[in-house]
Amino acid sequence: MDETVEGRLIALRQALALVIAGEGREAILERLEVPVQTGAEDPGLDPGPAFAIEGAAAEERRLLAEAVRRISGD
């Protein structure tokens, strides 16, 4: 499976689990907006697939949080 697709699916699964567990809006946003190190901080580092997956998951979580805030009128 492509690393980007895998990362995005992981993020969506995590968000769905928070909703099913009954977490409130603010708690979900807090979890979605946690900054993640993706390897981009060190330009000499060869990030590899694990960082690609985590980077895609972080981007998907950011997009989800952005959508929640837009829908909520924040």
Rank of each mutant, 00 (worst) to 15 (best):
A11Y: 01
A17I: 11
Q37R: 14
G48S: 11
V19G: 06
P49T: 06
A27R: 06
I53L: 08
R70A: 15
A65C: 05
A67P: 12
G39M: 01
R31N: 01
Q37N: 09
E60T: 01
G39D: 01
I10Q: 07
Q14A: 10
E3V: 11
A21S: 13
L12C: 09
D2E: 15
E33S: 01
L63P: 09
E41T: 01
G22E: 05
E60A: 13
R13W: 13
R62W: 06
E6H: 08
A21T: 03
D46I: 15
A50Q: 13
A65G: 06
R69T: 09
E54H: 00
V19L: 15
A56T: 03
G44P: 01
P47M: 09
A50L: 13
L16R: 12
P35C: 05
A11D: 00
L32K: 05
L18V: 07
E23R: 04
G24A: 06
R25D: 00
A52I: 03
A21Y: 10
D42I: 02
V68N: 14
G22N: 08
S72A: 15
R69M: 14
E59K: 15
P47Q: 04
A17H: 14
E26L: 13
E6T: 08
E60D: 09
P35D: 10
I28S: 05
D2Y: 11
E66T: 05
V68P: 10
I71G: 10
F51D: 06
Q37S: 15
A57H: 04
A15R: 04
A15V: 02
F51Y: 03
A11V: 02
T4H: 00
I28C: 06
G7D: 09
G22C: 07
L45T: 00
I71Y: 13
I53K: 13
R69W: 12
D42M: 02
D46E: 15
R61M: 05
A50Y: 12
Q14T: 06
E33Y: 03
L29Y: 07
P35E: 11
E54C: 07
E41I: 03
R62D: 08
V68E: 13
G44L: 07
A15M: 02
R69A: 14
V34F: 07
L16D: 10
V34Q: 10
E33V: 02
E59W: 11
R70Y: 12
A21E: 15
E6A: 14
V34E: 00
R70L: 11
E33W: 01
L16T: 11
R69Y: 14
